[in-house]
Simulated assay, not measured.
Amino acid sequence: MENGIHFISGLPRSGSTLLAGILRQNPRFHAMMTSPLGSIYMAMQVAVSRKNEAAVFIDEAQKRALLSGVFPNYYGGIHREKVVFDTNRLWCTKLPALADHFPNAKIICCVRNISWIMDSIERLVRRNILDLSAIFGFDPGGTVYTRVNRLAVSDGMVGYALDALREAFFGEQADRLILVEYAALTRRPAETMARVYDFIGEAQFDHDFDHVEYSADEFDAPLGSPGLHTVRRKVEFIERPTILPPELFRRFEADAFWTNPESNIHNVAVVRHAE
């Protein structure tokens, strides 16, 4: 981690695993799917908080050292000489702390129309018809409506990530963000990656977008969601009709706040296919 750290965050099913698969082609970089570092960081926050009665003996400097120390302690012996990209949807909620720990760090937020995120998750459920998914608590009795509702609430898989993204987008450290739309990454990967490299201040790299490989079968199988983090070999956008009922698909039409220039009060960098 001697060459720095950046973060991948944003919305689920929006290209974060694909982005990691592309970035890891660069021998200077380390990137993968969601790491345990976010959970470790939150556990350390609890340990140094007043919830721990002995934390009264931890001063501000010690607290900062303990919290920032989880990053080099996790990555230091593994990827000491690489630029690290750590992935977790919760990083958008920790932007002030990350800015304090790593003044040069950026966050790449993968985003997508919420309706298509819901469609993608439902498509995964229907593809694994013999498995129950941990995404829905291994519940065998749900419908597409109950599944979408569970995803959309503020502590649901999609709702939480969307609220976290809003928090970062409208926060004081918003200049550290770049939002990358799934359509831009899959339709114009070379141009999109060039924008990402410019934003993080790295030299451009010639990626092979016809041979991107990444999977995490050992993680996905216990969740009852095989293929959740499998990347297709070729980066491409595949047109398809939605499998959601029409009124359910239309429910989230107004949630893509990053597409409205008037909402972008901090001039956050946004890479869109529509540009």
Rank of each mutant, 00 (worst) to 15 (best):
A274M: 04
Q204R: 12
A55S: 15
A134I: 04
D198S: 11
E167S: 11
A216V: 00
L244P: 06
N260I: 06
A97Q: 14
S68I: 00
G141H: 15
E202I: 06
F29N: 00
R80K: 11
E239G: 08
H101R: 03
F57R: 13
L124E: 15
S9P: 03
V70N: 02
E247M: 10
A190D: 14
L95C: 06
A20Q: 06
L244E: 12
I58F: 10
E213Q: 10
P140I: 12
P12E: 01
G77T: 00
I243F: 04
P245I: 14
S115A: 13
A256V: 04
I78K: 13
Y74W: 10
V158S: 06
G76S: 05
I22P: 14
M32G: 15
S39K: 13
P245G: 13
V46R: 07
A97E: 15
P261N: 03
I135C: 08
K234Q: 14
V271H: 02
E122Q: 12
S133T: 15
I40G: 06
T87F: 13
F102D: 01
V196D: 00
H266T: 08
I135F: 15
A183P: 02
I200T: 03
A43E: 14
I114T: 09
R188F: 10
F136D: 09
T143V: 05
L223P: 12
T17R: 05
I238T: 15
T143N: 05
V231P: 00
D119W: 10
V158E: 07
G4P: 03
C110E: 03
R28T: 08
G10D: 02
T186L: 05
A55T: 02
V125F: 15
S215R: 07
L66I: 15
S35Q: 09
A183W: 08
F71R: 02
D217E: 13
S215H: 11
I200N: 01
A190N: 10
I200L: 04
T93C: 12
R188E: 08
V48Q: 03
H229S: 08
S14K: 13
D210F: 00
V231F: 01
R232N: 12
V125M: 15
T230K: 10
D220Q: 08
D163L: 04
D255H: 09
F209D: 01
A183Y: 11
P246A: 14
S120I: 10
G4R: 04
N104A: 07
R272A: 05
G171D: 06
A134T: 08
S263R: 13
G201R: 05
S263L: 06
V84R: 11
V144W: 14
G15Q: 02
I200Y: 06
A61M: 09
I8N: 05
Q173I: 01
D217Q: 08
